[in-house]
Design a binder for these strands. Structure first.
Lengths: 120, 120
DNA sequence: CTGAATCCTCGGTGATACTG
DNA sequence: CAGTATCACCGAGGATTCAG
């Protein structure tokens, strides 16, 4: 790594964008394919109606998610990843692999640290 | 991608952990090598004394950063990445590359979206 | 120089109700 | 079914001060 400064800034930008509470979850589920609003809401435990709307708006604004509304009654709106959004799933999967492989190490370090802190 | 559910959860965990305002910055600079507290503080524009302390504590707790204190006057404390922390820089660099390559597309999508929203 | 504690502000988030 | 608006809450983060 030579130009750490520039890498850091752009990385920090992306992390700031996708680092909120729900964005990665939404992206992950949309990487499976197109989903309707309520389908997403049902698949993502704990997300509120409002936050799903906001999260999808943000992703749509950044060109990562495409929204398709059908003028039917009742309304039907489908969301899917754009090519740009799909290109992000690769790097995210890399990070996810690291996460799965190293989660035990993280938890072990955490409990060890807390035990040391508790004892002094 | 078959098991999206599990991948999502572990990924969301890591994102939640490193997705705060300063962690990636600190990791990035420590990936260059060992640094003292004030060195980090000066290299990371805008970070407060308090937040640098908290961020480093969190990283140390998770076993990503090692802290070495010298019993001198004045005190001298050095921070560096652990092997676990170094193993994270790979996936992060992948994400950083994506960020640098696609930042123009993101900004373009954003302005286009905002223009559409402004006009109706 | 490094770190801990306190106070305070602000924005993200959730609950709810209403609209088309 | 999908989206918007309003209110209230809570915690992240900044400024400051004190300690070792």
């Amino acid at each position: 790594m030579e130009n750490v400064e520039a890498e850091c800034r752009s990385l920090a930008e992306v992390i700031a964008r996708i680092g909120d509470k729900w964005t990665v979850m939404v992206c992950g589920h949309l990487s499976e394919g197109t989903h309707r609003f309520n389908a997403l809401k049902h698949r993502i435990p704990g997300i509120s109606h409002r936050m799903l709307t906001i999260t999808l708006r943000g992703l749509e604004r950044d060109g990562l998610v495409a929204r398709k509304a059908y003028a039917t009654v009742p309304p039907k709106v489908e969301y899917c990843l754009t090519p740009l959004g799909q290109s992000l799933t690769g790097p995210l999967a890399t990070l996810a692999s690291w996460a799965r492989e190293n989660r035990p190490a993280l938890e072990q370090a955490r409990t060890a640290f807390d035990r040391r802190a508790a004892q002094g």
